[in-house]
């Protein structure tokens, strides 16, 4: 059974944070300015609302109730007495602050603040995910790795939103061609670095969560395989942009340049659609149980609630060791 409210809240939260981080960094490093508030404010509002939704979904799951039956006492208990709650109090405060900053007319300082807040919020997402389970210094390492993974993904995928806006202007004949070309080339280089970090930290995450090849044959493994396939598709699209379409922007004929800008704009839109599917898979993965080692104690009599590992049965299996 999949916890769809939790998957939905995770998806909206992740997507909004990626747009906030990616577009503010794009403004700072690529396009020299401030990301348009007409998408910063909705993204910040979506991040704040989905943070509240995530809290309700976790409270419902923890207390074994329906979403509608979650009451103030349960929310207080989640926020006050669980590791998730300790992180999420900060998450809610930061999400509120991000909305305030996005709504504030700010210039460059606004972009810096939005990027820093979105990076902190992505770290919060990492802290309450599968990376946060180890505790201690190993746990901090897992969380740090996952936070870098999410932030690099945000630089890449979130940056596609302002990139599309830039290409739209270029393909409709507006904007200065040399400046646009320069910006697209700089984003392309930054995205390659971000992709390298995504792949490295993603592989490290995998080492933690998947400790045998047999683990692929689980729901978690199947969703992971779909996600990796989608990422491979994204890489193909990015390579087409970089190797085929980008050189055509250097063309002397203005008609050829505009044609290339239109084609680039279309593949970037397509990349955004695939990115949305990747984030959907990532949101689902966070709620599914990663495969665990079969070597340790008998698990036949234990069951994952909301997952699909084993089933409870008569348990007369002696434990190997005493406490």
């Amino acid at each position: 059974m999949i916890d769809w409210p939790l998957v939905g809240a995770r998806f909206v939260h992740l997507t909004a944070l990626m747009i906030l981080a990616g577009s503010s960094l794009f403004a700072l490093l690529i396009a020299g300015g401030v990301p348009p508030r007409r998408w910063l404010i909705p993204a910040a509002a979506a991040a704040a609302l989905s943070a509240v939704g995530w809290l309700f979904a976790v409270a419902a799951a923890m207390s074994d109730r329906s979403l509608a039956a979650v009451d103030a006492a349960t929310l207080r208990l989640v926020l006050g007495a669980t590791a998730f709650g300790h992180v999420w109090k900060v998450q809610l405060a930061l999400a509120g602050a991000t909305l305030a900053v996005a709504a504030w007319r700010g210039g460059r300082g606004c972009s810096v603040l939005v990027f820093a807040l979105a990076a902190a919020l992505l770290t919060g997402v990492a802290a309450v995910g599968h990376a946060g389970m180890a505790g201690g210094s190993t746990g901090l390492l897992h969380i740090g790795n996952d936070a870098v993974h999410l932030l690099a993904a945000a630089v890449w995928l979130g940056g596609l939103v302002p990139l599309a806006a830039l290409l739209y202007r270029a393909s409709s004949g507006n904007g200065s061609p040399p400046a646009t070309l320069h910006a697209i080339e700089r984003f392309s280089t930054m995205a390659i670095a971000a992709v390298a970090v995504v792949l490295l930290t993603g592989t490290a995450n995998l080492q933690w969560l998947l400790n045998s090849a047999a683990g692929i044959a689980s729901d978690w493994g199947r969703v992971l395989a779909i996600k990796l396939g989608l990422v491979a598709g994204l890489l193909v699209l990015a390579a087409i942009n970089r190797l085929i379409l980008l050189p055509r922007l250097h063309s002397a004929a203005s008609a050829a340049r505009e044609g290339a800008a239109v084609a680039l704009y279309r593949t970037v839109l397509f990349e955004q659609m695939v990115a949305v599917m990747v984030l959907t898979a990532a949101s689902l993965l966070g709620t599914l149980p990663p495969p665990v080692a079969a070597a340790s104690p008998p698990r036949a009599f234990q069951q994952v609630v909301g997952g699909a590992v084993g089933s409870p049965q008569e348990a007369e299996i002696p434990m190997p060791v005493a406490v």
């Binding site: 897992h142 998947l210 990663p290 340790s296 104690p297 007369e316 002696p318 434990m319």
Partner: peptide
């Protein structure tokens, strides 16, 4: 970096109990 990472688990499974299981 990859060699440094090691597997972990994400759900609480019962490992030992007192009195022992069964």
């Amino acid at each position: 970096w990859l060699a440094y990472t090691s597997p972990a688990q994400a759900h609480a499974f019962l490992e030992q109990a007192v009195p022992k299981v069964g």
